[in-house]
Amino acid sequence: MRRVPLVWLIIVPVMELISIYWVGKWIGSGVTFLLIVLSAIFGVYFVKREIRKVWLNARMQLSRGQMPASSILEGICILVGGILLIIPGFISDIFGLLMLFPLTRPIFQALILLFIRKGISNGRIQLFFRK
């Protein structure tokens, strides 16, 4: 089971390089480079803009005495989506955009919540409560 992340660390960059090569061959290397740089700039801008909304929503929930679980999941999606946009490559850009758009973000929030619940039930994730 520990070899799975190692395999992904090899496969994903190779897939990204192949996608960059094919897009560069299709539309030209200069435009491909420009797209990669613009996606990183867009990612940073969009994360800064969306994280403010999430932060304000979380503060409002905390002021009402509610746990901001949905805001935390949104923040995780925005952070991961922004990181995926900053990483050069088109496959990561697609997933990054999907995680940043408000219409598709709930899908990834559900997947993250499922991952957390599965980790808690398997004992891989442990919760500690303080008094």
Rank of each mutant, 00 (worst) to 15 (best):
I86S: 03
W22Q: 12
P106C: 07
V7K: 01
L17Q: 06
F101Q: 08
L17A: 13
L35S: 06
I10L: 15
S70I: 10
I51Q: 10
G43L: 09
F115G: 01
L62K: 13
G28I: 07
L9D: 02
I116P: 02
A69Y: 11
G28V: 06
L85Q: 11
G89S: 06
L38E: 11
F115A: 15
W26T: 13
G89E: 07
I20V: 15
L73E: 04
V14S: 10
W22G: 00
L84D: 02
R3P: 00
E50G: 03
G89Q: 06
D93Y: 01
V12H: 05
I86N: 02
M60E: 14
I91C: 01
G89A: 08
I76G: 00
S71P: 03
V12Y: 11
L113I: 00
F115D: 08
Q109H: 02
G119H: 03
Y21M: 12
L38C: 14
I76A: 14
I27Y: 03
I112S: 02
R3D: 10
S92H: 04
I94D: 03
F129Y: 14
F46H: 13
L62C: 03
I94A: 12
L103R: 12
I10H: 00
F46G: 00
R59N: 12
W22V: 12
V37L: 13
L100S: 04
F95G: 12
G82L: 04
I76H: 04
L62V: 11
P88E: 06
K118G: 01
I86L: 13
F95W: 14
M99W: 02
F115C: 10
F108T: 04
V54M: 09
Q109E: 15
F129T: 11
S39G: 10
L103M: 08
K25F: 08
I107C: 03
M67T: 13
R105I: 06
L98G: 00
L35F: 14
K118H: 08
E50P: 03
I18E: 06
I86D: 03
P13A: 07
N57F: 08
G28F: 07
K118V: 09
I78M: 02
Y45Q: 06
I78C: 02
G30Q: 10
W26M: 08
I27A: 06
L6I: 14
G75P: 12
R124K: 12
I41L: 15
L100M: 14
